[in-house]
Computed example of a mutant assay.
Amino acid sequence: MALLKALRPLQWVKNGLVFMPFIFAVDVAWSTDDLDPLPGLLLKLLLVALAFCALSSAVYLFNDLMDRSGDRRHPVKRNRPVASGKVSVQVAASVMVLLAAVGLVVMILVEPWLGVAGGVYALVNIGYSLGLKQVVLLDAFAVTSGYVIRAVAGAVAIDVAPSPWLYATTGAGALFIVLGRRFAEVRLAGDAAEDQRSVLKDYAGPFINQLLMVSAAAAWLSYTLYTVEAANLPDNNTMLLTLPLVSFGLFRYLYLLNNSEQAEAPEQLIIRDLPLVLSIIGWVAASVLVLLLNN
């Protein structure tokens, strides 16, 4: 159980992003008139999602190995399996290498170019663990890139060229989530913020509030423009009908950042806050319905 905890399975929910291009690829990669390609496409996406689960867990193990000394001085992180000694350095390192190899091999087998996406993802996260996480703003952009790479990988897996708006929307939304986590970390840590994560001192004060508001506005605006400008979406702009659900999700997340004790763990909020979960499910259902009705 300690090893499973070290793999951080709750974080795997992020890998669902690889399916996003599939939803918006109706009439491009698949069609309601011809469902034969559907099983093959979904299998590819499932394999890519599982590969990212393996690769991301390898990255978390690498991060825990690098930070184990500092984590032992942290009131919460000292309970992590590697820092506490429940998972030995040798076991963590061995599993890390195995998972990274399996993840990259699966990606390459699905589509050779996915190996590049997986490699870039791994390199960015290694850089994050080795120092980028101590550099204000660069730390947030490094984490954000992981979300965008997942969306790109999903498009590559099903051989579609998604609208640049998909990348912009994914990036803006991810940056909002990441900066929201920094906001929550500063709020919950209080005066001890710098002791828990040195970069938090650079986010303290009005700065993080300004970043959060700008990123929220960017996420909302980019999605709005995506629904009306993307060439692969209905010309009658009916995708705008999904905007209230996206708006509610953004505002609900802002509310939780200011009021929830779990706000520094977005993956917890996404799977445990019922209104937020329902808004995500509603958005997926509404998007699919609009696309199918306009097919």
Results as ranks from 00 to 15, higher is better:
V28N: 08
L41D: 02
A218F: 13
L278E: 05
A29S: 07
V87R: 02
P162K: 15
I280G: 06
D64P: 04
G282V: 06
T224Q: 08
G154R: 07
G40H: 10
F19L: 13
N15Q: 10
S215R: 12
V228R: 05
F176V: 08
L35I: 12
V91Q: 11
A83P: 00
I126E: 02
A219S: 14
V110P: 02
L46K: 07
W113F: 14
F62H: 11
L132W: 14
L10I: 11
L61P: 00
A192I: 08
I281Q: 09
V95M: 07
A189P: 01
V59Q: 01
P75Q: 12
R78F: 03
A54Y: 05
L3N: 02
A155V: 05
N79S: 13
D64I: 06
S287T: 12
V48M: 04
Y167D: 04
I23D: 05
L200E: 02
L241A: 14
L211W: 06
V246Q: 03
L17Q: 00
L291H: 01
I108Y: 13
R80C: 03
A25Q: 04
S56H: 07
A142N: 07
K201A: 14
V214D: 00
I271V: 14
T224V: 13
K201D: 03
R68G: 01
G173Y: 11
I126N: 03
I280Q: 10
A142F: 07
V105E: 03
P266I: 06
F141D: 01
V246H: 10
L3T: 03
E229F: 15
F141I: 12
F248V: 11
L221V: 13
L35N: 04
D139S: 12
F176N: 04
V95K: 04
D27V: 10
L42P: 00
G249A: 15
T169R: 03
V214S: 05
K201P: 01
F22I: 08
F24M: 12
N63A: 10
R68Q: 08
T144D: 05
V178K: 01
R272G: 05
W12T: 03
L17Y: 04
L3F: 04
